[in-house]
Amino acid sequence: MTSLLAAASSTSFDVPGNVAFAVLAVLMVVAAIRVVTTRNVVHAALWLVVVLGGNAVVYLILQAEFVALTQLLVYIGAIIVLFLFGIMLTRAPLGRSEDLDNNQRWIGAVVGVLLLLVIGYSVTQSWGSDRLDFAAYDLPQVSDVAGTAVEVGGSGNGRTQALANEIFGDYLIPFEVVSVLLTGALIGAIVLARRD
């Protein structure tokens, strides 16, 4: 037992981290399965909250704080509310209902398992032994707007700042395009949904 632990620690086996991840992963998978199997529409939305929240935690584990927060804000704050409104407005049965699935369950299951096998096999083949390193995050220096070098080191602040530099530097045009897309979607949603 000790030798195992020693071996694990010698390769920097992160026991608490992995246990936390395992619990989180199981929770997310179960929640996701409930989303697609539950017979109650509102429950499905609530299970979806669990998956999305779990996603945010995964982002935190991967040291992507800004994305994690955005996930919470956009998904749980906005999209879930949208879904609940959608459920209400379409007068979906609020209790249990038996006919939420069509008659393709077996086909769906086979396709899902097939996809899982193919994706699982290929990622294991390609990335099976890669360890996470956060070296890519440790950008040596970034410049602030005035051009002075800013020390970022490993601090969380610095990573978010580096992300901001990426978005408003290399990815400025895609960013603008996305904002146009959002405007378009807004208008489109209004046009589609308004009563006339």
Partner: peptide, 15 residues
């Protein structure tokens, strides 16, 4: 379903 099945099979063949 057909689309995803075909994609999975095709991807599997490639992999």
């Amino acid at each position: 379903a057909l689309f995803f099945a075909a994609a999975a099979i095709l991807a599997g063949v490639f992999v």
